[in-house]
């Protein structure tokens, strides 16, 4: 029996409803994967200035936020699912060069201007760091 005939023989054992059940099972897998493995997807951006909460913004719409600090204005850009520090008056630009933040728990800190941008959401990659 050729490989193709063998396969057809196996497939002949499947009845119409079986295909439905298999499809439903695969859908259930995909659904479980989509809901349980979404961990790390952020849902809002938290901006702090001078140690105080400056504002919380949902990561659903595009917007820019201007945050005043001791050196000047830090420009924060928010897009669906991500956020970044677009411009900062600080001398070394670490927070700007970090680029887009996409994971819950990620933080960009512009220390000279005392501004920080963090993403919060369910199931960040870590819940605390110790040094």
């Amino acid at each position: 029996m050729s490989a193709r005939a063998a396969l057809a023989d196996w497939l002949s054992l499947l009845r119409p409803g079986d295909w439905l059940v298999i499809a439903a099972g695969l859908l259930l897998c995909a659904y479980a994967g989509a809901t349980l493995w979404r961990g790390g997807a952020p849902d809002k951006a938290v901006i702090r200035a001078g140690g105080e909460l400056f504002g919380e913004y949902p990561l659903s719409a595009r917007r820019t936020v201007e945050v005043p600090g001791p050196l000047g204005v830090t420009l924060i850009e928010i897009e669906p699912g991500r956020a970044r520090v677009a411009a900062d008056p600080g001398p070394r630009q670490y927070c700007v060069r970090q680029g887009w933040l996409t994971q819950a728990g990620a933080v960009a800190i512009c220390a000279p201007n005392q501004v920080s941008l963090g993403l919060s959401g369910r199931g960040g990659q870590y819940d605390s760091l110790n040094y």
Binding site: G17, D18, V21
Partner: peptide, 18 residues
């Protein structure tokens, strides 16, 4: 008790596995 014409051992097996 599902109609046998439509649901064979494969359906039962998948149900049982779940």
């Amino acid at each position: 008790h599902l109609p046998r014409r439509w649901f064979g051992p494969v359906s039962l097996s998948v149900f049982a596995a779940f």
